[in-house]
Each structure stands twice: as C-alpha cells, then as structure tokens.
Design a protein around this nucleic acid. Structure first.
Lengths: 246, 246
DNA sequence: CGAGTTATTCTCATTGTGAGATTATCTTGA
DNA sequence: TCAAGATAATCTCACAATGAGAATAACTCG
C-alpha cells in the first residue's frame, strides 16, 4: 500500500525517481539493387564503441514521439521528412543499456531507394547494410531489427506498404520485386499479376508504359501508381511456411 | 550540429534533461455475461480527478516493462500473474499529461471472466465497464482503449487469442460467442464450426461433452481445449466491412 | 535475324467461403 | 408425458480465391 502512496507522491515530482531516459530508434528500410537494406550508424564512443546501431536518440522537450523519430532519421540521412514512418514497439529491459535505465520506442520507416547518408551529417558514419547479414549490433538492436523485419513482412500482406518502396509509378514486376525482396521468396509472376489487379484500390493504371522493355528483353510494361486502398482485401498472403503455422 | 553534441553529452547524465516519466497502462479485457468489458479505475486526485482511467503507473527501477504491467494489473485486481499480456503501443505526446512529460507504454491483457476487483486493493475504485459505452476517460486513454480494441479484434483473426477468453475447456459455441462479442457481429454457426475444426492446431477434442444441453435446449456439445497453433492458417477473417477496405 | 527474356493473359484443378437446409438431441412449459 | 422451440453438428451447392503451368506477344541483345 505504501508503495502505491509513494507512487502517487512521485507523480508530483518524478525527479525523486531514478532517472529514466526515453529514446527513439528507427529501423529504416530501403531496397537497393534488389536487396533489402537497413540504415545503421557506427557508434563513436563507449559503450559499444565501434559497433553499429540503429539511428536514434533522446526525445526532446515538447517533441512528439514520431516527430523525434523523423528528426533522428533526417539527422542521420538528410532524408526529407516525408518518409512513411510508423511505431514498431518499445523496449525497456532494465539492463539494456549499461549506463542507465533507457526506454526506447522504436519506429519503422520505409522509402524507395534512399540516398546514401549525406557526408558531414551528424552521424560519424552511417551506412546502409543488407539485412541478410547485418554486422553485430549494439544493445538489443538486433532484436529490434528482427521485430521490424517481421512487422514489415507482415504488413506487406494486408496493406499497400510495398508501394512505399517504389517510385511514384511502377510496374507490376517492380512491385513483385519488392515482395520477393522483403519476403525473400520467389513469387509466381502470373498469379501475382492477377492478384494485384484484383485487389480493389491497391494500384491504379496510369495509362502509360515504360519507354523500353526490360534490360534483358521483354515487352514494355504498363505503369501503375498506388491506389487509395489502405487495407488489401483480399490480402496477399505469404506462401505458407510449413511449420510457421504453429 | 551542436544539438547533437549536447545530446551526446546528455547520454552521460540524463538528469540534465527535463524529466520524463515512464508509465505502463493496461487495457485489460474480459467477457462477462456476453459483453466485452474493460477494467477501469477511478482517479482519486487531480488532474482528471473523478474520471475513469486505465490501470497503470510508473515503472520501477530494475523492473521490466511487461513485469510492470503485470504488477499494476495485479495491484488493481488481485489477478494472478498468469494472464496473457502483450505490448500494445506507446504514447508520448508532450501534452498528454498536464503535470509533466509522460511516456506511456500500453499493454493489452485478456482473460476469461475475471473476478471483480478485490476490495481493499490499491485502487480506490476499480470496476469493469462495457467497452460499448465507456465513461469519459482521462488523458488520452480513450485513444489507447480504441487501439487496444482494434488490436484485439484483429488478433482474433489470425491467432488463437479467443481461447484466452474461455475456460480450460470450451464448446465451439462458446468460442463463437467470444468472436461475436469481440467483433460485435453475429456469425454463421455452421460455417464457424467447420472453419474452427479445419484450422490445424486451433482446438483439440477432449473426448468429453457438456453434462447437459444448453439452458434453452439443444444437444450436449463436445468440449475442446486450445491446440498448439500459435497462428491460424487459414485465418478466420471478419466479415468484410463494406468500406473498411479502403 | 534468332535466341532468350519478360509482360500479360488463360486454363484448370483444388481449396476456402457464404448461405441455407437437415437431423438428432436437449430443455421447457403446457 | 408430450409438443414446441433451441442448439450442436453435418451437409449441399454455388461461387470466389489460389497454385501451377502454359500460351502469346513484345522486346533486347548479340
């Protein structure tokens, strides 16, 4: 009972409590040359000096959570603040940072082939790394990255998220490429084509086509843009993993 | 640039930063008499005195996030710590609490018909409220509750979550009742029956039946228990809302 | 120009779904 | 005790969705 009393008192001056730091970390994903990449920054100082970590930092007074995530991303990459961003999860294990109690709210960001992190930016060294074999990550960031990847893979199924990885217009094949890259599995081209066009609001025709065929041949492909659907019905389900079911 | 510098410095003493409090809030759901209820506590002091709020409180040093959520739930309800709990989302708008910067990590809890909050517990008054017409909630808790409900509804589709609302064993009709209550729509009994039994690992037969028929007649129903599936394939999709698609 | 590649469309068998009907087993109330 | 109404568990049937494979046509490259 007195525990609760002290808690109530603490509401009036949280400084009585051991300090808790709140940070945002961003799992920024992009596709470059057909490979899914995540943005990482190299830590310039202890702890975990020299290790790679997700871009992130402390929230500022008066700054909302998604705002902080966008700012951190912009600081590391010079990225325009128009990237799609969404909250992923929060991590607050007492010993996840050796210095102090740190609660981190992670965000997931997607964008079409992002530029290299700008030189002279805040991050001493920021770079895109293939998610398939990332370097050893600081703190619990490997877990955060894994959670982010799973979220991204799942959201491809029932949202038009894939279109945020493409340019303004795209071909069905490019869209299929996004799915194949993120899911890491080849898809049946014909069935994928049929499926995408049958989902209301997923894509809409532009009436134009690519100016030339693919680099290795094939006809010119029709160009589409993202439609107005926010959820896909029916969803594009991943090929069932044998035992992923259970 | 100097912003970043100060941020790096601050890593070594977060007390230099304006204080941030971290709390956990719990959206605890149960089904009583065929109605979905959420656990609320009445605030005993300003701000928002007299308003209802989600149970929750400050995290303690050395305490993990889910641990804090379980503790808060136990303090308010006397509930055994075995309730299914999962992280929902985090809320950190700068002005969500007038006293100070508060970042709240919300958790979602499910359990079969929970007992009434125990008298003499920490909460001056805690009670179950139907989610269909909740009282006016403090802070941004209406939003948190709404997010929790949507999450629960969505998870019924592709996880065996519904079985956490039932007892150890249950009939298919009871399971259907959970779906109907949470989704708020009537379901086709025959199709639901077929579907549940066709999903591998969703339920497994106990070999027993209820000792008597339903209160209004009908044969004795077979009893099942939760199976070992963690995901449902194929999923039990909600009846498509006309324009929910877009 | 010929080979190889790709976009797009079809076919067909199989599975999953919605709606409705059937049958047998209970409870309740006359 | 029996008739009426309710419910559990199956089944039918039409239709939508899916996976696999094939066909066709339009390109690129050497």
């Amino acid at each position: 009972m007195d525990e609760k009393e002290s808690a109530f008192l603490a509401e009036y001056d949280p400084r009585d409590y051991p300090p808790v730091a709140v940070t945002v970390d961003v799992v920024a994903l992009t596709i470059r040359a057909g490979v899914l990449h995540v943005l990482l920054v190299e830590r310039g100082r202890p702890p975990q000096q020299g290790r790679w970590a997700l871009p992130g930092g402390f929230i500022r007074p008066g700054e909302d959570l998604p705002e902080a995530a966008r700012r951190e991303l912009a600081e590391e990459t010079g990225l325009a603040p128009r990237v799609h961003i969404e909250q992923l999860a929060s991590y607050g294990s007492p010993d996840r940072d050796p210095r102090m109690r740190v609660v981190s709210i992670s965000y997931l960001a997607f964008a079409p082939d992002l530029p290299d992190p700008r030189a002279g930016s805040d991050a001493a060294s920021a770079a895109w790394h293939p998610v398939s074999r990332p370097p050893e990550l600081a703190f619990d960031h490997a877990r955060v990255l894994a959670d982010g990847l799973e979220r991204a893979r799942a959201k491809l199924e029932y949202t038009p998220l894939a279109t945020t990885f493409t340019g303004e217009t795209f071909t069905i094949s490019e869209l299929r490429g996004v799915y194949e890259t993120v899911w890491g599995v080849p898809l049946h081209a014909g069935n994928f084509h049929r499926k995408v066009l049958s989902v209301p609001g997923f894509v809409e025709a532009t009436g134009h086509s690519t100016v030339s065929g693919g680099s290795r041949g094939g006809p010119r492909a029709k160009l589409y843009r993202a439609g107005d659907a926010r959820l896909l019905h029916p969803a594009l389900l991943r090929p069932a993993e044998q035992e992923g079911t259970r």
